[in-house]
């Protein structure tokens, strides 16, 4: 069984265009198909608005697809959404916490939503915060006092606390300083080795994708234009770098922004 199996997945958003009364459909994902094996890390590269976040939010059961199917360990994401939710957790570009609450409080209540009792989280929260390199003496501090790098570590701890078998990382290092980026990357590697977790990483950081992923896909205008190991992509497009691969596959540089559909 595939960890993730996606077939002809489609999502449109409706958007009002200028002075027209009718909303027009803006495609965010167009007939995307791919699979991810258990324990694999797949990175999806794309510009802003290419459909990366839509893909992550569909797999998180936060969106309903307009066509196609997606399964997580055999569970269809809309029909069997609660089973999917038990298997998935995510880290997104914004750490997103109750800012007046401490890291320990944020982690505790989030774990309850996954059925973890105080007896289970009592020892587990300090352990997992220590593992992501969060200083013990700051566990009681409100989140608003922490740097973005620190907050992102807590976000990773929140995701790991529930032992997800599918970890969705949506630009987890965007906006972090170089040191924090390296630390988060090391943590993702560690999670894969010790947790038997499958990882879907959406990013526009080419270096990060190459460092972490077994295979790399490129989303362009909602279409998955390729998905293969980095070296194979370079061979296929006769490119020396992933940046050149991206340009050859899409005709644009990664930094050029599309209009955001999601």
């Amino acid at each position: 069984m595939h960890a993730v199996s996606i077939s002809d997945l489609r999502k449109d958003f409706r958007r009002r265009n200028g002075r027209r009364l009718r909303r027009e459909r803006v495609p965010a994902l167009r007939d995307v198909s791919f699979t991810i094996e258990r324990g694999e890390c797949v990175a999806v590269l794309g510009q802003n608005g290419s459909g990366k976040s839509t893909l992550v939010r569909l797999l998180s059961t936060l969106l309903l697809a307009d066509g196609g199917t997606a399964r997580v360990f055999g569970h269809e994401i809309s029909r069997d959404s609660r089973a999917v939710r038990r298997l998935v957790n995510r880290v997104s570009v914004e750490a997103s916490f109750f800012k007046k609450m401490s890291s320990a409080e944020n982690l505790a209540y989030a774990a309850r939503f996954y059925g973890m009792t105080p007896a289970e989280t009592g020892p587990r929260i300090p352990e997992i915060l220590a593992r992501v390199g969060f200083p013990a003496e700051r566990r009681g501090e409100p989140m608003e006092n922490l740097s973005r790098g620190m907050q992102q570590k807590v976000a990773l701890a929140r995701a790991l606390l529930t032992s997800p078998v599918l970890l969705l990382l949506d630009e987890p290092t965007t906006g972090l300083d170089p040191r924090s980026r390296l630390e988060v990357r090391a943590l993702v590697r560690d999670v894969r080795e010790t947790h038997d977790a499958t990882v879907l990483l959406c990013t526009h950081d080419l270096e990060e994708a190459e460092a972490l992923a077994d295979r790399i896909g490129i989303l362009d205008g909602g279409r998955l234009v390729c998905l293969a190991p980095a070296e194979e992509l370079k061979r296929r497009y006769g490119a020396a770098t992933l940046e050149e691969v991206f340009f050859a596959a899409t005709g644009r540089a990664l930094e050029d922004d599309e209009e955001a559909a999601d």
Binding site: R85, R90, G115
Partner: peptide, 11 residues
């Protein structure tokens, strides 16, 4: 707070 997605994707 921005936590809505995490709460609504919890099982």
């Amino acid at each position: 707070e921005g936590t809505i997605e995490y709460t609504f994707m919890a099982p």
